[in-house]
């Protein structure tokens, strides 16, 4: 059984600093693996542990530096990795990203049976790329997956976590699932994994390698564009600081009071 694991390197958005001109200070901004993609990775490794006969290929689209993240994925149990990196990919929206990744999968790994993505990437927060990849490949998708119950040759059964409850869904393969969270403990690097990661040959594919026309990639291939971007306005309120719990309690009772 062949799994494609889509992972993305993102800036650590919990630690953003602003320049005097209200632009994001890019220097010193840490790159991390998107937290939801960690769940995706853990889910795929858990399937490998449970079913044995599972081959996991990690795929990422991003700058050359993402190579490090892919090696880390190999060190914790992913079998191999590939990086989609090309200046032509820059500025891609979710449509162009979906097309690029789908094209890479269909040209380089056509015999996959399950694609696992994180539900969101914390930098863009769109949750659109997974379904967009599935659309381009014309395969079914299941979003908001919190648990993978069963994985067989021709179907996968998962539990979706929705606002109103939990839905158990069986989907025919090939399919794409977007993982919300899982219950696994984060994997630690394996000793032979670390060696494998250091030695791994991680191919880098550009637009030409996957048969993507220049006008299909990046900003050119994106139907949307950013008209302007600005620092989010701060709400203008004067915070009244309280210094003892008694006052705090009074405020809570006044503002949340049932007898209003």
């Amino acid at each position: 059984m062949k799994i494609i694991l889509c992972i993305k390197q993102v800036p650590d958005t919990s630690d953003i600093k602003w320049t005097e001109n209200n632009t994001i200070q890019r220097e010193g901004l840490e790159s991390i693996i998107n937290p939801y993609d960690v769940y995706a990775m853990e889910s795929s490794i858990a399937l490998k542990k449970k079913y044995g006969d599972v081959d996991i290929t990690a795929l990422s689209m991003g700058p050359r530096q993402a190579d490090r993240m892919l090696r880390k994925a190999i060190s914790v149990g992913v079998d191999k990795a590939v990086l989609l990196s090309d200046k032509k990919f820059a500025g891609a929206d979710t449509y162009a990203t979906g097309k690029t990744i789908a094209k890479a999968i269909s040209t380089k790994f056509p015999d996959y049976d399950l694609i696992i993505c994180g539900q969101f990437a914390v930098d863009g927060d769109t949750a659109q790329t997974g379904p967009s990849i599935a659309s381009f490949l014309d395969i079914p998708q299941v979003t908001y997956v919190k648990e993978i119950i069963k994985y067989s040759d021709n179907s996968v059964t998962v539990v979706r976590e929705l606002d109103s409850g939990a839905e158990t869904v069986k989907v025919n393969l090939p399919a794409l699932i977007c993982v919300l969270k899982d219950t696994f403990e984060p994997s630690r690097p394996l000793i032979n994994g670390v060696i494998k990661a250091a030695d791994a040959d991680i191919p880098v594919y550009g637009a030409e390698d996957i048969g993507l026309e220049p006008d299909e990639a990046g900003l050119k291939g994106s139907p949307t564009y950013v008209n302007k971007a600005y620092r989010a306005p701060q709400k203008e309120v004067e915070c009244k600081f309280l210094d003892n719990c008694g006052d705090l309690l009074q405020v809570i009772e006044k503002c949340g009071g049932e007898n209003e």
Partner: peptide
């Protein structure tokens, strides 16, 4: 013109579609 927060909600982007 669709405005959405991005970059962990710290940047507001106004997005237009060509299509």
């Amino acid at each position: 013109a669709a405005t959405r927060p991005t970059f962990g909600g710290q940047l507001m982007a106004v997005i237009l579609s060509k299509k």
